[in-house]
Design a protein around this nucleic acid. Structure first.
Length: 132
RNA sequence: CUACAAACCCGAACUAUCGUUCUCCGCCUGAAGCGGAGGAAGGAAAGUCCGGACAGCACAGGGCAACCCACCGGUAAAGAGCCGGGAUGCUUUUCCGGUAAUUAGCCCGGCAAAAGCAUACAGACAGUGCCACAGAAAAUUUCUGUUCCGCCUUUGGCGGAAUGAGGGUGAAAACGUGAGGUAAGAGCUCACGAUGCUACGCAGUAAUGUAUAGCAUGGGUAAACCUUGGGUGCUGUAAUGCCAUGUACAGGGCCAUUUUGAGAGCUGCCCGUUCAAGGCCCGGGGUAGGCAGCAUGAUCCUGGCAGUAAUGCCAGGGCCAGAUAAAUGAUAGUGUAAAAACAGAAUCCGGCUUACGAGGUUUGUAGCUUU
RNA sequence: UGCCCGAUAGUAUAAUGGCAGUACGACAGAUUCUGGCUCUGUAUGUUUGGGUUCGAAUCCUAAUCGGGCAA
């Protein structure tokens, strides 16, 4: 087992091909203000879950604002991802996911931190139903 | 002391826990992983407005076109940047002259001086065009008028000639003021000035300033065409080189095939020249990974020297982001008047422009207090 | 990241440097028992700042916003 709260290169969604597959073939759900795309994968990877974050440049034209949102999303995912990893290890599955901030105002960190457990639980539930 | 404006400087520190990226070292056959050490956004990283470096393609030669620049000298790799100087314009103050009933702070003028600000600042005496409305006239002019002559019956009217001063129009009106002169007038003449050209001196590297003489005086616009002088090959790091993977040498259309030659190169066009048997288009298919480019440079810091300055030279020391969905965050505390503003590298530099914060320094203006 | 275009009424689209039009729409009135059609009228404006010029939608320049291209 790697470190509990890490978020290194191995745990990020990498490559233009994988990202295009994720957005065209993957499924999605929304827990406001975050929309999540996910795609179960068959091939073996270094890490069972790979995640990416983003914010639209139409809502946030300044690069500083987009960087801020991406940092907050990464920080929340890093601290709250443990249940997802445990589920994936138990059932030996892999998944790629991408979270996009869709509101038009700058968020507080506490808001995103509170929403993140719900997103993880919803994702585990949907994966379980899809499997069975 | 307070407020405002301008210029320059600065762009918030530390500790703990968790976490990101790069480099080096160790464990390890190697990879992965773990541990340790170190580095990790800006003054504008922004806009992409100028200028380069670098790279690819092109490069016998001539002409045309297009685009850019424009007072002078310096600086620099270069520039529409910067520094210094000049000229012009505006404002303020002082001074001088004129006019007026007056010894004018007030009106008019000043190549008389100082300070401040601004200027895409070659040429309108090479040529062409344009200048609405108003006005007589917007560039070889004559509405009202003035004067003289002739005719008619006088107050006056008509015709001819001269004139460009006064009036009014306009953004702009035919060099300005005064005097002489004249029938009335006019640079028609003179005095003092203005502007331009030519000649010749002096000062200055030069722009330019200044003295003298002669000639001339019909406005504005070149960010209208243009003329003069100078300059510019095109494309941008998604450039470009290498490695790996993979496919379709399938199909359709047009033009040529040894001449009268389709077409290609000289990347804007023409001449000229070279090559020439295949060329162009539609449509379809494949790949879309890695390495280099890519972080030692017109570099940064300190000191000295040269120069009015921009800047340059010398010596010593330092290595200071390098990702590829894209790295600096979260929590708690110390501390502060305030965890503030504008804002995030993507090939790299020199400038310009725009955005912005709490202050600091200097200069100027205004107000208040004290002496 | 690099390069290149554009901006005129609510919409579409004109305008040699010289009074900013045209069509549709909007509003008001007339006509009609009411609405529509029709007729008459009105209000709307050059993205913003600075400059050249007597005068700028137009020329120059800086910004803002929008759009396009790129192995």
């Amino acid at each position: 087992m790697p470190k509990k709260f890490s978020y290194s290169k191995k745990e990020k969604v990498k490559g233009r091909k994988l990202i295009e597959r994720l957005f065209t073939e993957g499924k999605s759900f929304t827990i406001f203000p975050i929309k999540t795309f996910y795609l179960p994968l068959d091939e073996k990877m270094d890490s069972p879950a790979r995640a990416g974050v983003g914010a639209g440049s139409k809502n946030f034209p300044k690069a500083v604002q987009r960087n801020r949102i991406k940092r907050l999303l990464r920080e929340a995912y890093r601290t709250e991802k443990l249940p997802l990893l445990e589920y994936l290890y138990q059932h030996s599955r892999q998944v790629a996911l991408f979270m996009i901030y869709i509101d038009k105002t700058m968020p507080e960190y506490s808001l995103i931190k509170n929403k993140m457990p719900f997103i993880i639980q919803r994702l585990i539930r949907e994966l379980h139903e899809n499997n069975s």
